[in-house]
């Protein structure tokens, strides 16, 4: 079935949005939704109509644990930088470790950490911790056409998170959103992430900065209306991508 009949499309979209389209028919329709913009539009219209009915449902406060769970799942960086949970000690029992032994081990490790940090961390990190050096990072200072600083972009060399900090007032684009692009010396530009209008934003990169940015010389910001732009539009801000090591 090609689902070309407007009446059939309307019927399927309405029953899909209502939820009565079930089983194999629903799964087939969901597959078609991935491919057909007309079906997505019809569903969006029905979801909008039916959503109006949903506003009559009596409110009921959700327990705080729901937000705690949502928060934990949507803050990857915060979660990653939070102190690691203490490992449960149960696994030690089969080896007949005593708590005293564990404490002694921790003490010995602490002494070694202070005396010979190179055993635990890289020389670069040790230098950074002692204030002798900044961490190896990729950084970019982006300015507008007048040369006024607007954005500071930074990412650890072997990290997969990128921070974009607003350092000068930014006028929101008339349409769409601001997008940060990496422009390699050779090859097409690619999207690095969204640009906040104020404050700073951190986004997850698809790989390490070293993998993505080692051959990138320039960073640009464009205003894009497309949710998944494939090439940069008119440049709003630009700057060089530098290696901080």
């Amino acid at each position: 079935m090609k689902y070309t009949s407007a009446r059939l499309v309307e019927h399927l979209a309405s029953t899909y949005a209502l939820g009565t389209l079930a089983g194999g028919a629903r799964r087939r329709f969901e597959r078609l939704l991935q491919e057909r913009a007309d079906l997505r539009l019809a569903v969006a219209e029905w979801e909008s109509r039916l959503g109006l009915l949903g506003q009559a449902a009596p409110p009921h406060a959700a327990p705080p644990r729901v937000w705690a769970a949502v928060d934990a799942r949507t803050r990857p960086l915060a979660a990653a930088s939070a102190p690691a949970r203490p490992a449960p000690l149960g696994w030690l029992k089969p080896a007949s470790f005593s708590l005293g032994g564990v404490a002694a081990g921790l003490l010995a490790a602490s002494v070694l950490f202070v005396l010979v940090p190179g055993l635990f961390i890289t020389a670069d990190r040790a230098a950074m911790l002692t204030g002798q050096r900044l961490p190896q990072s990729y950084v970019g200072l982006l300015t507008d056409a007048q040369g006024d600083g607007k954005l500071l972009v930074s990412s650890l060399r072997h990290g997969t998170a990128m921070t974009v900090k607003v350092i000068g007032p930014i006028t929101p684009p008339a349409q769409g959103r601001l997008v940060l692009w990496a422009v390699p010396a050779q090859g097409p530009a690619f999207v690095l992430g969204p640009v906040p209008l104020t404050g700073s934003a951190t986004s997850q990169l698809p790989g390490t900065s070293e993998q993505l940015l080692s051959k990138v010389q320039k960073l640009v910001v464009t205003a894009e209306t497309d949710t998944a732009p494939t090439a940069p539009g008119a440049v709003v801000f630009s700057g060089n991508c530098a290696k901080l090591w």
């Binding site: 949903g54 409110p59 406060a61 959700a62 729901v66």
Partner: peptide, 10 residues
């Protein structure tokens, strides 16, 4: 959340 939880609970 209260409204959406109401919808889900319903």
């Amino acid at each position: 959340q209260a409204h959406l939880f109401g919808v889900a609970l319903r």
